[in-house]
Design a protein around this nucleic acid. Structure first.
Lengths: 149, 149
DNA sequence: GTTGTAGTTGAAGTCAACTTTAAGTCAAGG
DNA sequence: CCTTGACTTAAAGTTGACTTCAACTACAAC
């Protein structure tokens, strides 16, 4: 396991819940960092666990890895990030969630007014054409993620 | 445009909002059907528009194309589907939306209790580890779709 | 009859976020 | 020293829902 205070890949995988392949991927993408042993194996500082917690939370809220990377890039590299640093990064998530909830409620309410009619008109039906929701993206836009279907 | 009462690909594309390539894709997948002219061009009956409206609505609610195909397969092929047929198909969508909304509210409430602390503990933080929400899928699960970020 | 737009096909490409594979190297216990 | 399990890499594969491409054909207008 743990020789000094540095963590191996499997340590971090076990503690963070991310697969080792994901950790390597995140490193390639510049989201996390690792030093190496003389034999070229990765060793992580404990701070990486908080970084990974941030990544997981951000992904849960719907950020892409690019966005996560951009957020992490605003952390100071001269000192260890403080709680205030992490709080600053996550402060904008609430409005994101509120917007998402509102969009889904709108869709649900559209369904309520639609389910009895069977209309499914492409022009009028709120389910087929939820106006301000649907037009935010091109064809085939999905408004629900696979895990919650 | 429209020679008889049959619709060309571009007609259907314009009226449904789906790209011609999507229409061809849906036909390959068995979700819609088209007859052919003597010159092998597709001609659609008007009923395809309602089918496409259903597809779009189902996608908005989060169904995969496989699920949509399964739903459409329960429609009678001997007669034109009635409003009741369509209503039956879409009746289960509400609980799906309710579940999704509840999950997001839970995530938001977790954020509310978390944003002031900056903890981001992998074990305790509700944002990193939203229990019954997150464990519904493997690594990297996303709970928000790209269009609404 | 010519032109130009619309349509045809199969195959390959796209995107995100990883995972898997293959072929090999390192570390620790016995 | 030897074995075994953990680790390394680059490259390719996965998934879903399409889009794009290349090369070709059809149809309507003039």
């Amino acid at each position: 396991m743990q020789t000094s205070d540095l963590l191996s890949v499997s340590d971090v995988a076990a503690r963070s819940g991310f697969a080792p392949s994901a950790l390597r991927f995140y490193e390639r993408e510049g989201l996390i960092h690792a030093t190496r042993t003389t034999g070229n194996q990765r060793r992580y500082e404990r701070g990486v666990l908080r970084r990974l917690a941030f990544i997981r939370a951000a992904r849960n809220v719907g950020l892409t890895l690019d966005e996560v990377a951009a957020a992490l890039a605003t952390l100071p590299d001269s000192r260890t990030p403080t709680k205030a640093d992490w709080t600053r990064l996550s402060r904008s998530w609430r409005s994101r969630l509120d917007a998402q909830i509102a969009a889904l409620e709108k869709l649900r309410d559209g369904l309520d007014s639609c389910i009895g009619c069977g209309c499914l008109s492409l022009k009028r039906c709120a389910m087929s054409n939820p106006g301000d929701i649907a037009r935010t993206d091109g064809p085939g836009a999905r408004y629900l993620p696979a895990p919650l279907r």
